[in-house]
Design a protein around this nucleic acid. Sequence first.
DNA 1: ACTCTTGTTAAAAC
DNA 2: GGTTTTAACAAGAG
Length: 281
Amino acid sequence: MPELPEVETIVRQLRGVLIDNTLAGIEVYREKSFEGGFEKVIGKSVSAIERKGKIIFVRLSGDIGLMIHLKMTGQLIWRKNEKRIVGGHPTVDWVGNLPSSHTRVKISWLDNGELFFNDMRVFGWIKVTSLQQWQELGRKLPHDVVDDGFDKNYFEKIVKKSIRPIKVLLMDGSLIGGVGNIYANDALWLAEINPNRVARSLKKEEVEKLYKSLLYVINKGIETGGASASNYVNLDGLGGKYQEHFLSYKKEGEKCSRCGGVFMRSKIGGRGSFWCPGCQK
DNA sequence: ACTCTTGTTAAAAC
DNA sequence: GGTTTTAACAAGAG
């Protein structure tokens, strides 16, 4: 599940290979995965790569671009001159020959590079989008957790008026941009707060601690190149390292490093949740 | 063969 | 009217 740190990792890598590159061709293997006309983007060159929440925008000359959402299983992988290592070991990092059975779109570039959009579950998408549409969407979406606008006051305001479980609030993409299941679970463990707590029942100190914890885990995720717990790989087809730093995510049955309790797993707001009943109160 | 999984959104319910 | 809940999407893992 690519969340902000995973998407940010890809965005930084995309800047390295796509800026000033020219879009040469598009091949769509699955209709549902691509929306819009090729003629509007072929021959255009990349001027910037932007990100808002988990959405990527490849900005092209002519006030147009490609908006990309990876949803749960989307991958963007860059290949140039077919430099795949032959005889490598099949590991979590291994993507193999492309296109694969999960490749939905291939975008070719003037420097012979190829960008593959893989998406096993076909929830993700690439859409031809005008610069104006992108900017309008940006105005509607909430601040990312890493934005200056997402300050302690804003966070306290939304926490104080919600009766939902705090974890559900953390993952509400209409109020906070970029947070998904992994980082919501880990932030709550770090803040020693039970994910089931009614949001507005949190004391002021708890809200502050959670705010700091959230920023900490998201930044840790960016520093470590994202979490490869399932499908996520970066632009080189390699996994990130944040899974080595998981605080609570996917730890059910394991011992809590802080209090020795045993991690629980349950569903909160329909999503798998992990927490330690010993120290998350 | 069946259930579970996941991010987002649209629609329904409160 | 704003907030909250639920279902739907697709396909693989167990």
